[in-house]
């Protein structure tokens, strides 16, 4: 249990630092690479929470595919790759009180709702078979809807990005 808590603390620290760098760095490519750190940390937390399949999907889809999309998007919309000065809004400081107030509200809600409730000690990893039985059983209709969403997104992205 102690080892799990130490692992959680280390990964959480890395994730928070990475997330702060994503929203504060002045280089778009660096922001994408810090986002890789945050997403990999999230995958590690999923392993800690006995969700191996979601962790693997996270690495495949986010760290693999979405990040390549972001780097291509940066490359295609930027005349130069490097430090830039106008990445923030003129009134970016308004974001700080909004985020802090939101966090205060969520912290109060979380502390009053869960207090020091513990995770179950003997949680076994959820097998892929259970997850697939869920997807192709009770949640089949959302899966179909999701298939149409992905199809529409593929066609939409091609239509949007096509030169004509």
């Amino acid at each position: 249990m102690v080892a799990q808590n130490i692992g959680f603390a280390l990964i959480a620290l890395v994730m928070i630092v990475g997330a702060l760098r994503v929203v504060t760095t002045s280089n778009v490519v660096h922001a994408a690479l810090w986002l890789v750190v945050v997403l990999s940390g999230a995958a590690a937390q999923y392993v800690l929470l006995a969700a191996e399949f979601v962790a693997i999907t996270q690495v495949l889809v986010y760290v693999g595919a979405v990040m390549v999309l972001f780097l291509f998007g940066t490359m295609l919309t930027r005349s130069r790759i490097g430090r830039e000065t106008d990445l923030n809004n003129p009134r970016w400081k308004w974001g700080i009180p909004v985020a802090l107030l939101l966090f205060a509200a969520m912290a109060i809600a979380l502390v009053s709702a869960f207090g020091d409730e513990k995770m179950p000690e003997d949680a076994a990893p959820v097998p892929v078979q259970v997850v697939s039985d869920q997807i192709f059983g009770p949640y089949l209709l959302p899966f179909w809807a999701l298939s149409f969403v992905l199809l529409a997104a593929v066609i939409g992205a091609i239509v949007l990005a096509r030169k004509d």
Binding site: I16, A19, L20, V22, V23, N88, N89, W92, K93, W94, G95, I96, V98, A99, L100, L102, F103, M106
Partner: peptide, 9 residues
């Protein structure tokens, strides 16, 4: 909250 800050800023 960090994400919300990023969207605003």
């Amino acid at each position: 909250c960090i994400g919300v800050y990023g969207v605003i800023a």
